[in-house]
């Protein structure tokens, strides 16, 4: 009986805890009354929030799908995450740029997921010509997830960063510039 109770505790911690964590939302925002704090004095009256939800929805249209955008625009890939199932194991391949002292360092990581989809790094490497990942055969397996971050229109006032998951636009930040408008935006979208 005692052993059964012990095993139950073990299960609760190992699996129950994980599933609870995975779905437990962070507590809602707690905003204290302005009167209680001095922060109201620091508020700026000239906030330039152009990215109200309606604006974002309108602005996203030309960028909604990455595959279409790739055909028409020169994009600068900033990071790429691919989740792959290879021989019943799920790996995550990450390609991004670490900050150097005087530049940037193209970096490749391989993660291995556990049963609760927690990923741990199993390989770290900087770019070596002809060799990206050594722990896995990247041509094998099935792609489960693909995420990319790209920069568009690098110019003096900034860039437009576009974030895609499985080809769907999830966020756009930076400067949106065309003949008629110049807007600084910070929009996020929910997965459909």
């Amino acid at each position: 009986m005692i052993i059964v109770v012990g095993v139950f505790f073990y299960w609760l911690q190992s699996y129950g805890h994980k599933s609870l964590n995975a779905f437990r939302a962070f507590s809602p925002i707690k905003i204290q009354e302005k009167e209680d704090l001095d922060y109201s004095k620091k508020l700026t009256s000239e906030l330039l929030l152009v990215n109200q939800k309606s604006d974002c929805e309108i602005l996203k249209k030309p960028y909604a799908h990455l595959d279409k955008l790739k055909k028409n625009e020169a994009l600068d890939l900033r990071f790429e995450n691919t989740h792959k199932k290879i021989e019943n194991k799920i790996y995550r391949l990450r390609h991004f740029f670490k900050d150097g002292d005087e530049g940037e360092i193209e970096t490749f990581l391989v993660y291995l997921e556990d049963k609760a989809e927690m990923a741990r790094i199993i390989e770290k490497s900087s770019y070596t010509k002809g060799q990206l990942y050594t722990k896995i055969e990247t041509t094998k397996g099935k792609i489960l997830y693909h995420e990319e971050g790209v920069n568009l229109s690098e110019n003096v006032s900034g860039t437009l960063f576009l974030h895609y998951i499985n080809n769907q636009l999830m966020g756009m930040q930076g400067v949106l510039q065309n003949q008629n408008e110049h807007k600084n935006i910070d929009c996020r979208f929910q997965q459909e």
Binding site: S40, L43, T44, E46, L47, L48, N51, G158
Partner: peptide, 12 residues
């Protein structure tokens, strides 16, 4: 929350 000062004014 506006009290945290979210704004893109610095870029303009």
């Amino acid at each position: 929350p506006l009290e945290l000062g979210p704004s893109t004014e610095q870029f303009g």
